[in-house]
Nucleic acid binder design. Structure first.
Length: 438
RNA sequence: GGAGGAAUACCCAAGUCUGGCUGAAGGGACUGGUCUUGAAAACCAGCAGGCGGGAAACCGCGCGGGGGUUCGAAUCCCUCUUCCUCCGCCA
């Protein structure tokens, strides 16, 4: 009970595998350092871990002793024998135990705190770099269109066509919110439908619409918490609730504290959610338009796989995400994130970046990642290969497919015509019931 | 929002009032066996799973979560969560 209390409601697993850390300390610290920062504090964590194990041994010894005496007391009472002598024996045990447990609790909390704030190990083969400058382009697909007129930015296109309304959104809520109107609203909705259809029907994912409010345990399990609490919208309520920041959180947590059957893996979900983010660290960035909003829609792919398959499943997921841009005939590129740009929970990430004429650059529309067992440890998600085999942690993967708002931006900007009208991508015409937004 | 009830191992379920041979009765399912030409039925046997400490022996923890009382808690106290029934309200 003690263990479970400190690490997680059930399971008692740490985030990084502390046993592996014990055995490969230098190597793991070196890998983590590639993210930027100094992770040598893990040496101290290990020292504390050693002390922790020593105290555990002591505490358990006392408990064994106490259990034995208690059992004897029970026996004596049943036999109506005098118990006062044994009772005296046990007098100081309580105090001794209490102080040792207190010490243990402190150490546990220290270790837990350190480990919860330590990110996943970057994959050893990904490029080492400081920030997004270090990301490596894998391939480019399609050619950025050459305009014979000055292309407009999506906020001008959207406002002129009366399909995006920023001023009224500001009136309703504030900055970084948008009202979609008319064919703008329809385009957003159609993209959600079409993307979900593609993944559900063509790619074999099961559709999920999860709750859009999640609890703190869920946020901890997928790695948003404790480190990135400021990015979340807290629900003003006496419960520990937050607005969904990405479908990865509710969808991975569907299986928190579960042991899955080997034969049901891989589990593949496509989840549609509205995501909410504070964007606390991006004040002043992308203030115009709908690139960076507090609220945006996203179709997400989530997989639970066996460890030996997660690499190939990541490649497959990348293909599934890319397929969306292929079919929309939007020019994009695929990059591998370098160690410095990698998200907290992830070992390896590909970004899809779509060409945006008004920015004259590629901008992220999807992020496809393999967390391997990092989230599975935090969330305590395991599987059994066979009925009799030992449970092992699954690997979790997630990828946008795609961020809907940014896809709208890409369509508006890339498909604009000189008169400010927008040509609808062929695949969407049956859904849109029009070939043009004018 | 109001009033009640419940949460026990894969499933059902006893135990909770009256704390101690309950590391958890009894079914069902499952696994193995007997019988059978084969199967069903019947009968016999096995059966928490897991986490942690340890080289191992073995030990510690587990009755929704957390905390407390006690030498000792499934059983007593506090707290949270979830589910069910009724009333009210509501898409």
């Amino acid at each position: 009970m003690l263990r479970a209390a400190f690490f997680y409601s059930k399971g008692g697993n740490s985030m990084l595998d502390i046993k592996k850390l014990r055995e490969n300390t230098e190597y793991m610290i070196e890998l983590l350092n590639r993210r930027g920062g100094d992770f040598s504090y893990l040496n101290e964590v290990l020292a504390q871990d050693e002390r922790r194990r020593k105290i555990i041994t002591e505490v358990e010894k006392i408990k064994a002793q106490r259990n034995e005496i208690s059992k004897k007391i029970g026996q004596y009472k049943r036999e109506k024998k005098d118990v006062s002598e044994i009772l005296a024996q046990v007098d100081n045990i309580g105090a001794d135990l209490k102080s040792k447990e207190q010490e243990l609790k402190q150490i546990d909390e220290y270790i837990k705190d350190q480990l919860l704030n330590t990110p996943n190990l970057p994959h050893p083969n990904i490029p080492v770099g400081k920030d997004e400058e270090g990301n490596v382009e894998l391939r480019k697909v399609g050619e950025p269109r050459v305009f014979d007129f000055e292309p407009k930015a999506h906020w001008d296109l959207g406002t002129d066509l009366d399909i995006l309304d920023f001023e009224r959104a500001a009136k309703i809520t504030g900055s970084r919110f948008t009202v979609y109107k008319g064919l703008g609203a329809r385009l957003e909705r159609v993209l959600i439908n079409w993307m979900s259809d593609l993944h559900a029907h063509e790619h074999g994912y099961t559709e999920i619409i999860p709750p859009y409010i999640v609890n703190g345990d869920s946020m901890l399990a997928t790695g948003q918490f404790p480190k990135f609490k400021d990015d979340a919208f807290k629900v003003m309520d006496d419960r520990d609730l937050y607005l969904n920041p990405t479908a990865e959180v509710p969808t991975i947590n569907m299986h928190r504290n579960e042991t899955l059957k080997g034969e049901e893996l891989p589990i593949k979900y496509t989840a549609f959610t509205t995501a909410f983010r504070q964007e606390a660290g991006s004040a002043g960035r992308d203030t115009r338009g709908i690139i960076r909003q507090h609220q945006f829609n996203k179709v997400e792919l989530i997989k639970f796989t066996k460890p030996e398959n997660s690499d190939k499943e990541l490649e497959e997921m990348l293909m599934h995400s890319s397929k969306v841009l292929d079919l929309l005939e939007l020019p994009y590129r695929v990059v591998t994130l370098c160690t410095g740009d990698l998200g907290f929970s992830m070992r390896k990430t590909y970004d899809l970046e779509v060409w945006l004429p008004s920015y004259n650059t590629y901008r992220e529309v999807a992020s496809i990642s393999n967390a391997e067992d990092f989230q599975a440890r935090r969330a305590n998600i395991k599987f059994k290969r066979d009925k009799d085999s030992k449970p092992e942690f699954v690997h979790t993967l997630n990828g946008s497919a795609l961020a809907v708002g940014r896809t709208v931006v890409a369509i508006l900007e890339n498909n604009q015509q000189i008169d400010g009208t927008i040509v609808i991508p062929k695949v969407l015409v049956p859904y849109m019931r029009t070939e043009i937004i004018k």
